[in-house]
Simulated scan of single mutants.
Amino acid sequence: MHDEATGEALLDEALALLRAGGPEAVTVRAVAEAAGTSARAVYSVFGSIQGMLDALAQRGYARLVDLVAAVPETDDPAGDLVTVGMQGFRTFALEEPVLFRLTFEQVSAELLENEAVAQTAYDTYRALRSRVRRLRAAGGVHPDRTDVACCFAFHATCQGLCSSEMSTWQPPDGPGFWGMLHGADLAPVWHDTLTGLVARFRHPPGEADQPGQTQSATSGASTP
């Protein structure tokens, strides 16, 4: 009989292996040896290696929920949403890049068939949706935009920024695709990109900027 503490201890070892060698390093035998237990214990708790990877992904979703919840609510819901992206998604990706990839870039239909994992994944959506609804209540979301569409756009943008920033890292940490930016401070890129996206939520979906609109907004911002 193996309790929840045993499962958490096994997951800790699995996460350490994941960080060191990626998903292929997480095997039943390796986790059992690292935890000083038997393969039977691993199977008893998770059922299979896929079950253990599912549990790791669930931990990743829970981590993002915690990071989003930690962002304080201020009287600037638009700014809060930008902060959610930077202190939630970006922090998760930079602190736990391998777990982030497993959680969001290697998601599968089989993963979401696990009810507990799917529920925790949905918790990330609800955490983000609550911030979008605060923005809507403040007049920052056009009535023609749905909550789910705003969440999708925001999540997709954050995930893309995470993947792109991690691609600046040199092997073995990343592919080095954007190696010319390795070591650069990309926080301003995040801020400007998310600020622009959140500002667009005030407008109808698909609406093109009117001639002179961007210039006018820029001029207004620079006027004392």
Rank of each mutant, 00 (worst) to 15 (best):
W190E: 09
R136D: 12
G36N: 08
G174N: 02
E33R: 15
A34D: 10
L194G: 09
E105C: 14
D80W: 12
Q159F: 01
A116M: 02
Q170C: 01
S163L: 14
V132C: 07
F92D: 05
E96P: 00
P224T: 11
G85W: 09
A138H: 06
P211W: 04
P175T: 14
L56F: 02
F152C: 03
H155P: 00
Q213Y: 10
P211E: 05
P171Y: 12
Q210M: 10
S219V: 12
A118C: 11
L186N: 10
V107Q: 11
A121C: 05
P143E: 15
D147N: 01
T6M: 10
F154K: 08
D75M: 07
A116Y: 00
D76Q: 09
A39L: 00
A138S: 14
L94P: 00
D185Q: 11
W169I: 00
E4S: 13
V28M: 06
V65D: 03
A127G: 07
G220F: 07
D54I: 00
D3Q: 12
A78F: 03
G206T: 02
A121Q: 12
G7F: 04
P172F: 14
E207D: 08
Y61I: 04
D3M: 09
A62R: 14
W169G: 00
G140N: 10
V42W: 03
A199T: 12
Q106G: 00
V148R: 04
R134N: 12
D209Q: 09
S163M: 13
P172R: 11
A199S: 14
E115C: 00
R63S: 04
M1Y: 10
